[in-house]
Design a protein around this nucleic acid. Structure first.
Length: 1019
RNA sequence: GGGCGAUUAGCUCAGUCGGUUAGAGCGCUUCUCUGAUAAGGAAGAGGUCCCAGGUUCGAGUCCUGGAUCGCCCA
């Protein structure tokens, strides 16, 4: 029986992960990881799942969010926290309805109602659950540990009831009110559009733009401008900017009043009769162009001040029709004007509008321009981008509609104060995108005139008395009945008697914005406060949430707004924002572009760990990813294969020699690698505490690289010899790495742990490693040593002498600490460079001359403007003498601008300039030179090594196993055979030859032009 | 139109408090090493640090303006 399960070097990671998943299921590891912390009474670390909508297949961006939602809860669990993670699903909202409309071929609300709201909502309910299985499958497969069995659904009656409670609370605070708002509205579909939909439908169109006279006395008119002539029929007021200069301009025999900066563009070069501030026009009465509707209150047809008036285009005199523009509407409200809307919901003028009644407003434009008569000053076509309904192409109208609002502006300052306490990643969101958004906060338009959503729990009687319902019990008490399903249409049948007037109270028809649902999840996921209030309180606020950066004004806002209104504080403390997934050319991934990468393709090709590792370490997650199958594959090759092979190496030799790892005498290299391991652990903890997987992962990868390509490479002999202490160190490194990696790549980490340790049922039930002892000096020394070796190898390359050829001597220029470092690892340096001895020269003169350069970093602040003079002074120093002084810790004096200054070792950078004729490589203060003279003995040894190399190749091509013994037969050139004879113990030892015969036959190969014939046979 | 971010080698990305010679990996060329490795090592080619101004003794880094891309909002 092998000590460990053999490791397949060609292991398919996707397959490996399947088996790890199976083990997790069998051992119920996820729940066990929570149960254990629960039993310990561990401190909670709270994560909130921002609910996705499962009405489409999950994509690569879902994987991104879900693994970042996974990694920190896993990490915190290993760090000793109790981290429950309840899943959730966002079920309501307009996108769901639109999807069903498409499926059913319905075009507008009339058709939905004709189809039947009950049937329609049943379809919506079905559709949002349609892909939950696929989400759950993917969630499990990528290793996102989430309690999907007890997930919350925003469509559940319990959830709705909690949301009702929140709305009733807000209503009791006096912060839920009905108001009017100008919204983009499609008259054909009979619905307002969200800004998102509006943004999809901009088209360049040519509209009439008209300059219109608004007379204030005979021969004197204000000159207004509009691109929507149809709104002139309900002109209510004019707006001017009080701070802009206006003029009375003479045009022919009339006077026109407009903003000065626009005069030339509109009127050309005309005489100006007077200049004055816009504020002086305030209160001026004028005669409107039409008189079909005239009663807008006392300020009808008066000039008003409006800050929104600009001098970018038009005339600086803005025609205002209260119902058809946001600014217009706000202006009217501000001045207490009476709203008149002469346009019906289908987009036609109502019966008040004389000859225009029944006409679609946009179609009426030409006739209205015609009807302006002598009020029309000028009429020009105007090309601009105008929003159209993305679905039916109808031009949208901006239209004042009644809507329910939550007075979030009442808690604006509090939200800003709470935002200050939130830990944002990346940081700029706090005061940038999110902070700006909060500062510009307006009341939340909560209601939707739709069907599939949480019904707004407000009942109203004919006399306008209102009552908000906060629970099913309350409804039961008042109405005597509660429907089994709290959605429309059932809830609309529930009526009760008005307490104030005895009339019948019926529910208002609206549902609410689905964002309020998701913002309610901190309490609604527990059905609090109707039950589980204690659970809610323990799990509020969240320590950590994580979503795409597009949620800044979505869920991040809805959470903050709802919970600040209800509880006066932010429901989360740390937010990690994720960027978009782009294709390799930087284009957004979308179905229409056809550049979407299916997450299953990635998983099938490279596995979930590779997917995770790529997302965690390739860049800062909020910057977005240029993503393809290949980029994920690269991260596998770079990191996971190196790790896997190191692990495989350990298992191979531990099994081969049946070695029991045992703590023993440690070598310098052991101490080094353990110190590096401790350093890596420190960094991993420090970075993961700071929500930085990128740096943590890269640090771990750097360690694995050191482990594989330095520690193991340099220690191979000890593993071949089965030295228990070496196995102990390597196992320690591998097991610790598996724990360090567990939150990031949970599969490979657990596979390694299970094979190497298995003292727990899973690595995910272990504590995160605590850093061991560091030996910082040793780490630094190894840096110097590796650096020196690199220089030596470069010197060899330049001299074109292969590493296989031994050389007599390397001359190393290094002093003090550096020399001590190299001496400590002399054997290692000799071996790596394949030289017989090292000779140190601490005085550089033998190999080169010192160059001094000023250290701008220290001298810059000291000399400021005179820095160039200081640099000159350093250049003028006698470099050799100054270097000697500085290296002994002395100071040198320079004169700059007539003043004396002392410079220390930190103030200059010393570098060696090699002398002519030496094969020298240098870096900073150390350098290395190789003696490349070969004597016959070195030459023989070099050839022997070449022969070994050739024999190993022959072994391999003969298909022998690494542990097979051979009978070796060699023949060919005498010089080669002499070399082999001279080093026969070495040759046979390296090639596991039990016998060497020198007689000719075998396959011929050539070494430096000399023939060598080799035959190997299993002995 | 407004807010925010990004732009560094063919590709993917680092680049600290502003410090003078801008790095890594992949890919490419040429070598090399090998009882784990699809690995490792050396050398080379490859750069208008998006552009233009400015601040500074000194700018990839700070400021202003612009371009392009993206996100969010109107």
């Amino acid at each position: 029986m092998p000590r460990y399960e053999p490791v397949d070097p060609g292991q398919s990671f996707p397959k490996l992960e399947e088996s790890v998943l199976e083990r997790w299921r069998e051992r119920d590891v996820f729940h066990e990881s929570i149960r254990r912390r629960e039993a310990e009474g561990a401190e909670p670390y709270v994560f909130y799942e921002g609910p996705p909508t499962a009405n489409g297949r999950p994509g690569s961006h879902h994987v991104l969010a879900r693994i970042f939602k996974d990694v920190f809860p896993r990490y915190r669990t290993m760090r000793g926290y109790l981290v429950p993670r309840k899943g959730g699903w966002d079920c309501h909202g307009l996108p769901v309805e639109l999807e069903i409309e498409r499926e059913l071929g319905l075009n507008n609300k009339h058709e939905i109602e004709a189809y039947g709201v009950e049937k329609f909502n049943a379809r919506c309910r079905e559709s949002v659950l349609r892909y939950i299985d696929e989400f759950d499958k993917l969630t499990e497969r990528i290793g996102f540990w989430l309690d999907t069995d007890n997930a919350y659904f925003t469509l559940d009656n319990d959830y709705i009831e909690s949301v009702w409670w929140s709305l009733k609370t807000v209503w009791e605070q006096g912060r839920l009110y009905e108001g009017h708002k100008v919204v983009p509205y499609c008259p054909r579909c009979g619905t307002a559009l969200s800004s998102h939909e509006v943004a999809q439908g901009y088209r360049d169109v040519v509209d009439p733009s008209v300059y219109v006279r608004f007379p204030i006395e005979p021969g004197v008119s204000l000159l207004g401008w509009t691109t929507t002539p149809w709104t002139l029929l309900s002109n209510a007021a004019l707006a001017v900017n009080p701070d802009v200069t206006y003029v009375r301009a003479r045009v022919g025999d009339e006077i026109l009043i407009m903003a000065e900066p626009l005069v030339e563009r509109v009127l050309g070069d005309v005489p100006i009769e007077a200049r004055f501030k816009g504020s002086e026009l305030e209160g001026t009465k004028y005669d409107p162009p039409f008189h079909y509707v005239t009663d807008f209150g006392p300020l009808s047809h008066t000039v008003l001040a409006g800050d929104f008036v600009t001098t970018d285009d038009g005339t600086g005199v803005v025609h205002t029709a209260l119902a058809f523009g946001e600014d217009d509407f706000a202006l009217g409200e501000q001045h207490g004007m009476t709203l008149q809307n002469p346009v019906k919901l289908d987009g036609t003028f109502d019966e008040r509008m004389g000859p225009f009644a029944g006409k679609f407003v946009k179609d009426a434009d030409p006739e209205i321009v015609e009807a302006l008569g002598d009020r029309l000053f000028r009429h020009v076509p105007y090309e601009h981008a105008y929003p159209h309904c993305w679905r039916c192409g109808t031009p949208l109208l901006y239209y004042a509609k009644a809507s329910w609002y939550v007075r979030t502006t009442a808690v604006r300052d509090q939200m800003l104060a709470e935002n200050e306490k939130i830990n944002w990643y990346p940081e700029h969101i706090k005061h940038g995108r999110f902070g700006e958004w909060l500062r510009g906060n307006v009341d939340w338009a909560l209601s939707r005139e739709r069907y599939w959503g949480t019904p707004l729990p407000v009942w109203r009687c004919d006399d306008g008395h209102e009552h908000a319902i906060g629970s099913r019990a309350e409804l039961q008490e008042l109405a005597g009945a509660v429907p089994d399903d709290l959605h429309k249409p059932f809830i609309d049948d529930v009526t009760f008697v008005c307490r104030e007037c005895g009339g019948e109270m019926a529910r208002v028809p609206e549902v609410i914005d689905a964002w309020w649902d998701s913002g309610s999840m901190p309490f609604a996921q527990w059905h609090a406060p109707h039950e589980n209030e204690d659970v809610f309180e323990r799990r509020f606020p969240a320590d950590y949430i994580c979503e795409g950066i597009d949620q800044t004004r979505g869920w991040f806002y809805s959470l903050l707004a709802v919970n600040t209104l209800l509880f006066g504080r932010s429901p989360y403390e740390t937010v990690l924002c994720l960027g978009l997934i782009l294709d390799p050319s930087g284009q957004k991934m979308s179905k229409s572009r056809g550049n979407v990468v299916d997450p299953w393709d990635v998983i099938d090709a490279h596995g979930a760990d590779a997917f995770r590792w790529y997302y965690f370490t390739s860049k800062q997650p909020w910057d977005g990813y240029r993503f393809s199958l290949e980029t994920v594959g690269e991260s596998v090759r770079q990191f996971m294969l190196t790790l896997w092979n190191t692990y495989g190496f350990y298992v191979l030799y531990a099994n081969a020699g049946d070695v029991e790892p045992a703590e023993g005498e440690v070598t310098e290299l052991d101490r080094w690698v353990l110190s590096r391991l401790a350093a890596t652990t420190e960094v991993a903890i420090e970075r993961l505490d700071d929500y930085d997987t990128t740096s943590a992962g890269r640090a771990i990868a750097a360690f694995v690289d050191d482990l594989s390509n330095w520690y193991v490479r340099r220690s191979r002999r000890r593993f071949w010899d089965g030295e228990p202490a070496a196995f102990w160190v390597l196992r320690e490194c591998l097991v610790t790495v598996s724990k360090l990696l567990a939150p990031l790549t949970p599969f490979i980490a657990d596979a390694m742990y299970e094979n190497l340790d298995a003292s727990e049922p899973s690595v995910h039930l272990c504590d995160y490693p605590a850093p061991g002892e560091r030996d910082v000096e040793l780490e630094w020394q190894m840096e110097v040593v590796r650096d020196t070796i690199e220089l030596g190898r470069a010197a060899r390359a330049h001299a074109k002498v292969k590493v296989r050829q031994p050389l007599g001597e390397a001359i190393v220029v290094a002093a003090d600490r550096e020399r001590a470092a190299i001496e400590r690892f002399e054997e290692l340096v000799l071996d790596e460079l394949n030289v017989k001895s090292l000779r140190f020269v601490s005085e550089a003169d033998e190999l080169g001359r010192w160059q001094l350069k000023p250290n701008y970093r220290t001298l810059g602040p000291r000399f400021g403007k005179r820095m160039p003079l200081a640099a000159d002074a350093v250049a003028a120093l006698d470099a050799q003498r100054a270097a000697a002084t500085l290296r002994e810790g002395g100071v040198v004096g320079v004169t700059v601008d007539g003043e004396e200054y002392q410079l220390g070792a930190d103030d200059v950078q010393m570098a060696l300039e090699p002398l002519e004729g030496y094969r020298v490589e240098r870096a900073g203060t150390h350098a290395i030179a190789l003696n490349v003279d070969l004597n016959p003995e070195l030459r023989r040894e070099g050839l022997a090594r070449e022969a070994v190399h050739a024999i190993q190749a022959a072994r391999k091509s003969a298909g022998l196993n690494v542990e097979d013994r051979i009978a070796l037969t060699v023949g060919g050139d005498d010089e080669l055979l002499d070399a082999i004879r001279a080093h026969e113990p070495y040759v046979s030892g390296e090639t596991l030859a039990t016998s060497v015969t020198y007689d000719g036959a075998g396959d011929a190969t050539h070494i430096e032009g000399l023939e060598l014939r080799i035959a190997v046979e299993r002995a």
